[in-house]
């Protein structure tokens, strides 16, 4: 018998416990303002900011310029972007002497040292966001690889303001995670941090030191 068979046999031989019903989560409601309300958006922003992230309001037309401004302020010289998306195309058109916009096109192991040492910032889109905890949902893909949101010291994220779920469970249900998750799904709630030394909070432990959210409002409701 293999270890697997012995373990499963021991578990199966154990006396059955009282039958347990599948827990019903229907009645569990997160305490957040209603969908679409200004309050829900405000809660999201407040929580993100309290987790040390920056949130900037912007719109479909102007976000690339805003990103350019912010990148300049933060002395970003190399911005790493994905490949093949419209957003990437718009950012690549901003490539200049002072800001090098670099596309993630080769497998990471072929340029690992450069990825770790030469990139100042990364850019990704968020699939959606979560109000209850102030979190971003990212579904990395071949167009937006996983390390884009991890290795560069600054992470710019473009988020559509309407894609704001109440909580993680709602995001899972609405977006049907159970049947179509990518290789790696991520929920990100701020820049990398640690409190491992004397419970003192420090940012930029291993991941990005700064998380900058570009909150994109559609024109009509743009503040």
């Amino acid at each position: 018998m293999s270890a697997r068979e012995r373990i499963l046999a021991r578990l199966s031989q154990a006396s059955a416990s009282e039958p347990q019903p599948l827990p019903n989560l229907e009645h569990w409601q997160p305490r957040v303002p209603p969908a679409g309300s200004a309050e829900r958006l405000a809660l999201f922003k407040e929580l993100m900011r309290s987790a040390h992230a920056e949130v900037h309001d912007t719109d479909e037309q102007t976000w690339p310029e805003l990103l350019l401004d912010l990148a300049r302020q933060k002395n970003v010289r190399t911005l790493l972007v994905g490949n093949g998306t419209d957003s990437v195309a718009r950012l690549q058109s901003l490539d200049s002497e002072t800001l090098h916009v670099m596309s993630y096109q080769r497998p990471a192991e072929q340029w690992r040292a450069a990825l770790f040492e030469q990139v100042d910032a990364g850019f990704t889109q968020a699939k959606s966001a979560i109000a209850a905890t102030g979190s971003l949902v990212l579904w990395p893909s071949s167009q937006e690889p996983r390390l884009l949101s991890l290795v560069p010291p600054i992470h710019f994220v473009l988020l559509e303001a309407h894609a704001l779920h109440a909580d993680l469970r709602e995001a899972m249900r609405v977006e049907q995670w159970a049947t179509q998750m990518p290789t790696n799904a991520l929920v990100i709630s701020g820049p990398s941090k640690t409190a491992d030394i004397q419970q003192t909070l420090a940012y930029g432990a291993h991941g990005p030191k700064e998380l900058i959210v570009l909150l994109c409002h559609s024109r009509e409701v743009s503040p």
């Binding site: 979190s135 071949s142 390390l147 998750m181 790696n184 799904a185 929920v187 820049p191």
Partner: peptide, 16 residues
């Protein structure tokens, strides 16, 4: 800060 859902190894075409 990070909730990481891992569903498998790199798929063809993925870069990391």
């Amino acid at each position: 800060t990070y909730q990481n859902f891992i569903n498998g190894p790199r798929k063809p075409g993925e870069l990391d």
